[in-house]
């Protein structure tokens, strides 16, 4: 539990935190390149994601106090003056508490605010059901004009800072805190509206987002030992969605499993299912995610095991989807 001395290392002692990697330094570096980069946060700035930036550029940090909605609307006003405003939010109190500010003040107005939604999913599961952030993909996907990213790990998050500039308008970045099975060894090349092809394969496809991409890679590696060739797509761009990659996966591999640290309603699986239905792809398809119920509490690794968000269960769900051989 060594990391618990840092109040923002919520996962210490359980699952290794992605935020202890390069993201904080990358954000500092990004800020060093462009003095128009500002940060607003509701009493959350000093943690591993933005702490280094604040240390280097204290005058470019605006603390909004514990007032998330106000932080979002202030960010919109500042973005009107050409600033590249990042808002660091705790996942549980970001999209769901500020859905209206994000929709009305940021997305409808097309102000290019970048929302860093940290500690998403079950990362803060120890603290109570109030601290789960498992509805945010559904909420943010439903907002016109908002780009939604979900990096798979620290390296992807690092690459994503720059990618926000490709979006024509605001961006919501759902950061995963989990570092169970990192997908990338270095910051990857990412493209707006594309999925990452992490593993090529022809027997089936696993599409994962955030932690889901980490589990997908692990499962594909496990299944490879059984002679199965599994394609792995990293759904880091949830909106716009890479429909072409989904259609190709359906046509070329014949079965799709999606994996996400989000409730099964309205998340990645729903989005992929919509594409399959529109394209009349009657292929075997399944969604691995969290049940649509009030979730229980515990340390993240316990919760991941409890709800089957593990490499082993991802592999098992994939096996179940394939025709018996």
């Amino acid at each position: 539990m060594s990391g618990m001395s840092d109040p923002f290392s919520f996962n210490a002692g359980a699952v290794e935190s992605s935020y202890v990697g390069n993201l904080g330094e990358a954000f500092r570096f990004y800020g060093a390149q462009d003095e128009d980069v500002l940060l607003i946060s509701p009493d959350l700035g000093g943690g591993p994601v933005t702490g280094p930036f604040i240390q280097s550029f204290p005058d470019r940090f605006i603390d909004a106090g514990i007032a998330e909605g106000n932080a979002m609307s202030i960010a919109a006003g500042m973005a009107c003056y050409g600033y590249k405003v990042f808002v660091l939010q705790m996942g549980a109190f970001g999209a769901i508490k500020c859905a209206e500010q994000i929709r009305t003040d940021i997305a409808f107005t097309k102000t290019p605010v970048r929302i860093l939604s940290a500690w998403s999913g079950l990362a803060m599961g120890f603290f109570g059901t109030s601290h789960h952030a498992v509805e945010d993909i559904a909420i943010t996907r439903a907002i016109p004009g908002l780009t939604v990213f979900a990096p798979a790990d620290d390296n992807a998050a690092t690459a994503m800072l720059k990618l926000t500039e490709q979006a024509d308008g605001p961006v919501f970045i759902r950061l995963t805190d989990a570092n169970i099975n990192p997908v990338y060894e270095a910051p990857p090349k990412l493209e707006l509206g594309r999925f990452g092809l992490v593993r090529e394969g022809c027997d089936a496809t696993i599409i994962g987002t955030g932690l889901g991409a980490q589990l997908a890679v692990g499962a594909a590696d496990e299944l490879a030992k059984e002679g199965l060739s599994i394609r792995v797509l990293d759904a880091y761009s949830l909106k716009p969605l890479d429909e072409e990659a989904i259609r190709a996966a359906a046509a070329e591999t014949g079965a799709i499993l999606t994996v996400e640290e989000h409730i099964v309603s309205g998340g990645l699986g729903t989005a992929v299912g919509e594409v399959l239905a529109r394209n009349r792809s009657g292929i075997p398809f399944s969604i691995l995610g969290l049940p649509d119920e009030t979730l229980t509490v515990g340390m993240p690794d316990e919760l991941y095991a409890h709800y089957g968000l593990t490499v082993a269960n991802t592999a098992q769900r994939m096996r179940e989807l394939l025709p018996s051989r």
Binding site: M72, S73, G77, C80
Partner: peptide, 24 residues
């Protein structure tokens, strides 16, 4: 200068503009 319709938001937005203008 800024859209509105949902009550209670625009003082925050105006504050953001005020802070940004000073910074510029």
């Amino acid at each position: 200068d800024f859209s509105s319709g949902s009550l209670g938001h625009n003082l925050s937005v105006g504050l953001g503009m005020a802070l940004a203008a000073k910074r510029r």
